[in-house]
Each structure stands twice: as structure tokens, then as C-alpha cells.
């Protein structure tokens, strides 16, 4: 039953592409936000934290609608990108990347925040007294010690992006070969009278990707406490 049609393969390829780019685009932001939440005390922390988590709780159609308002033809962000860079992302696969990145950000930031918090702050202090500035301390101590968690957060965010549906279809619609990702292809198949078996095939792929990602993240997170700086000698 695993004979996939060219349009199935298109959708899988597009979902992979969107998932990977979404991780690449959100990684620097997620890392900065996770570090901020884990290590810096500031008054607006609960607000920042809530804004990052919002896409997790909000109906995805609302997130997609907000993206459309912001990045659409007449939206402020859309006009900015068009005017300065000649880029339009609404109804393009790049828009699907933005939608997926926003939807994947909470999982990524949460995983990274916990892994950075698991790094003993006293090791960072030791690095400073040894002559390392804040950036070098981050890249030589914090990052390598929290790496399994950062990788786990990225994998989960990839899986979330791979399967993102609601915000994506709202923001970039359902254009075969451009924005019809795997979940949108499943939805389209279910709209056709004989599409059930095709939808099932693609659903099994979605389930497999999600399961592998969750198991990988679990295995990686198990390695975290061992690699942090608490020596019990």
C-alpha cells in the first residue's frame, strides 16, 4: 500500500523543507529567548514567557489570521519586506516556514530553557574568573553542556513544523507544490470521495515522524543531568 503518488511525494518533500527551514530560522531567536528566560531576571519576564507560549494555546487559525494581518499584502510587516527586500511571503512556501516557526517556537524555547537551567550557573561563574567574557562563556560552557536539550528542542520543533496545519492553511492557503504540506494534503484528500486510503498512507507517515521525534527528544533529555556540572565527589 506504500506506492506514493507524485503529489504525495511533493507534499512530503515540502513538509520536510518547511520543517528544516523553520528550525534554522527560529534557532537563533529561540536560543536567545531561552537564555534570557533561564539566566536573566527582568520585570517583564512573565509577559515575554506568555507571548512565546501563546501559539501553543491559541487556536492555530487565530495565529494564522494574525500572521495574515501582519505579513499580508497590506500588513505592516508584509509591506516592510516588500518595500525593502522585494519579498512576499503570504501564499508562498516561505510563509509556511514563518507559520511553522511561530508554531514550533514554544516547544523549542521550553526545551532549551530547561536545558540551559540544568547547567550549573557556578560553572559559568568559574569561566568568567578564568578570563572568558559572557559570549565565550556561553559558547564554551553553557552551549556544550546544554547541547542535548537544545538538540531535543530543535527536533520536537521540527516535528511540530513538519505537521503544522491550522496556521499554515490560514496564512498561505492550499496551493499544490507551493504550500500544500503533508497535513494539508491529508485534508485535501479527505475532501475527495475516494481519498481515504491516500489520507491514511500520509497519516501513517505523519505519525512515524512524530513518534521518532518524541523518542529522540526523550533519549537526548535523559543525557542532560549527566552532562551538567554537578560533581558529587
Amino acid at each position: 500500500m506504500f506506492d506514493l503518488s507524485p503529489s504525495d511525494l511533493d507534499a512530503i518533500y515540502l513538509s520536510l523543507k518547511v520543517g528544516l527551514w523553520s528550525v534554522i530560522v527560529s534557532l537563533p531567536f529561540a536560543m536567545a529567548l531561552a537564555y534570557l528566560l533561564a539566566r536573566v531576571e527582568f520585570a517583564l519576564k512573565p509577559v515575554v514567557s506568555a507571548l512565546i507560549l501563546l501559539p501553543l494555546v491559541l487556536p492555530p487559525v487565530v495565529t494564522g489570521f494574525l500572521l495574515l494581518l501582519a505579513f499580508g499584502k497590506n500588513g505592516p510587516a508584509g509591506q516592510f519586506l516588500d518595500h525593502w527586500f522585494g519579498i512576499t511571503i503570504a501564499f508562498k512556501w516561505t510563509g509556511a516556514v514563518v507559520a511553522a516557526a511561530v508554531m514550533g517556537l514554544p516547544l523549542m524555547v521550553m526545551g532549551m530553557r530547561i536545558s540551559i537551567e540544568s547547567v550549573d550557573h557556578r560553572l559559568e561563574m568559574a569561566a568568567r574568573t578564568l578570563g572568558a567574557g559572557p559570549w565565550r562563556t556561553f559558547f564554551s560552557v553553557t552551549l556544550p553542556l546544554s547541547f542535548p536539550g537544545i538538540l531535543a528542542g530543535s527536533i520536537l520543533s521540527f516535528a511540530r513544523s513538519f505537521g503544522e496545519f491550522g496556521a499554515t492553511i490560514t496564512f498561505v492557503s492550499n496551493i499544490p507544490g507551493e504550500t500544500r504540506t503533508l497535513p494539508i494534503a491529508i485534508y485535501s484528500l479527505l475532501q475527495t470521495p475516494s481519498g481515504d486510503s491516500g489520507a491514511l498512507k500520509l497519516s501513517l507517515i505523519a505519525i512515524a515522524v512524530a513518534l521518532v521525534a518524541i523518542i529522540a527528544a526523550e533519549v537526548l533529555n535523559r543525557r542532560l543531568p549527566k552532562s551538567t556540572g554537578r560533581d558529587d565527589a
Binding site: D120, R122, L123, A126, A127, S227, D231
Partner: peptide, 19 residues
């Protein structure tokens, strides 16, 4: 800042980098 003080600090809990 500590990285520019030229002071060596040996901590009670040692704080060697485990990686």
C-alpha cells in the same frame, strides 16, 4: 568584570568543566 581582573579563584566545590 571578573574576566579582566587577573585574579585566580579556586572554589570550594572546584567547578571543573565536566565536558
Amino acid at each position: 568584570p571578573p574576566e579582566h581582573r587577573r585574579i585566580g579563584y579556586v572554589f570550594q566545590d572546584r567547578r571543573l568543566f565536566p565536558h
